[in-house]
Design a protein around this nucleic acid. Structure first.
Lengths: 202, 202
DNA sequence: CTTGATTTAGACTAAATAGTCAACTATCGG
DNA sequence: CCGATAGTTGACTATTTAGTCTAAATCAAG
């Protein structure tokens, strides 16, 4: 599953063959088919694992209720550019969001992968939405519909990631944090925002 | 090229084979290789044609200098949901932006397709950017950096399209127009905006 | 019509790919 | 140590796929 994720993330779902995955994982085809029926089933399992073992814990930490809602969003936004840069430094490529990439690629085919990517995207969104709702309620964001505000923010983020991947340039994400806060309509002026930034590395 | 575009758009670049394209175009392999060296070269030609024969004329019309800058942006935004719905009605699927989909899929491979998708995305952006710049200059948008404003808007749009494709639901784009104007920071209140809409079908 | 150039057809090869299978090996509870 | 279960292996088949090649067909101009 790790090998499959890496390959699919750095290339695309369609470009990766079962032979590639077996080679990368140093496993023979027979072993592969002992555990999985097909590439599709493997992809679903791998995405499921990605969510449960990697993303969910991280999201639970970032969006912990012990942190102020606006601060959660700040931390989330700041992490995007940081992780993209790290990945680019590690693999030499701007990779973007694997779930969005795969989701877009197979989204027209109504396979099991679609169900899984949709599920993960919706789960992720829920974290953002509840933080946005709370932040609007506690007055740290301008009043408005939290659902729409979340749609705008998450679409913006996905669009930025998509573009960074297409252009192979993580630097496109440099101002994502700042732009994201602007989209969110933070009440306090940017000067105050800037002064508050050091607190985000807690 | 038409057959290739249709297939790649409705599925993905990796999922479409030369045989598929030949079958769809009702052409034999020998003919294909008489005109093209490979699937990649065909894709580049097809994307180039898509831009020159389809997108560029449309963009030139929408972003005509004879129209007020804000009005250009309005028309552009309104067209996205409309066309997505039409396509969904025609092919039964929410397809999104073919250039963005292909660009994301092959973006990590540094092939000729990448160059072409990047070129098209940049060209498209220039239309939006100049309209945003003019709209800020003439006071119909709040003051700010037109480049950043454009990045935010286009990323938002691409993110929405990506999501609509992943979810196979064009209705996600229903409020794109309104949300886009909010992101653009239109100066006049939404009531006035609403009253001005009928003028957009000119 | 004739000729030469362009285009098409379809059979062909070689490689890649998905998927199968029976034999083999490791592990683990008793 | 035994037997059983779980896991591994590599060779195997069938299919798909990219790409080639030659002969036939079409076309355009004199």
């Amino acid at each position: 599953m790790d090998a499959a994720l890496e390959l699919v993330w750095s290339q695309s779902y369609g470009a990766v063959t079962i032979d590639d995955i077996c080679k990368k994982a140093d496993v023979k085809k027979g072993s592969f088919y002992y555990f999985f029926d097909s590439k599709e089933q493997l992809a679903v399992s791998a995405l499921d694992r990605l969510w449960n073992d990697d993303w969910k814990p991280k999201m639970d930490e970032i969006f912990s209720a012990s942190v102020e809602p606006l601060e959660r969003l700040r931390t989330y936004l700041a992490g995007i550019y940081r992780r993209a840069s790290e990945t680019k430094a590690r693999v030499g490529r701007m990779l973007g969001c694997p779930v969005a990439s795969v989701g877009s690629e197979v989204g027209t085919q109504e396979c099991n992968i679609c169900t899984k990517t949709r599920e993960i995207i919706n789960r992720k969104r829920r974290y953002v939405e509840s933080a946005v709702r709370e932040a609007i309620a506690d007055g740290s964001l301008e009043p408005g519909d939290p659902v729409k505000r979340t749609v705008v923010l998450t679409s913006f983020i996905e669009g930025m990631m998509l573009q960074a991947r297409t252009m192979n340039d993580p630097e496109i994400l440099k101002d994502l944090h700042e732009m994201g806060l602007e989209i969110l309509r933070v009440k306090s002026p940017p000067e105050v925002t800037l002064a508050a930034v050091p607190a985000s590395n807690s």
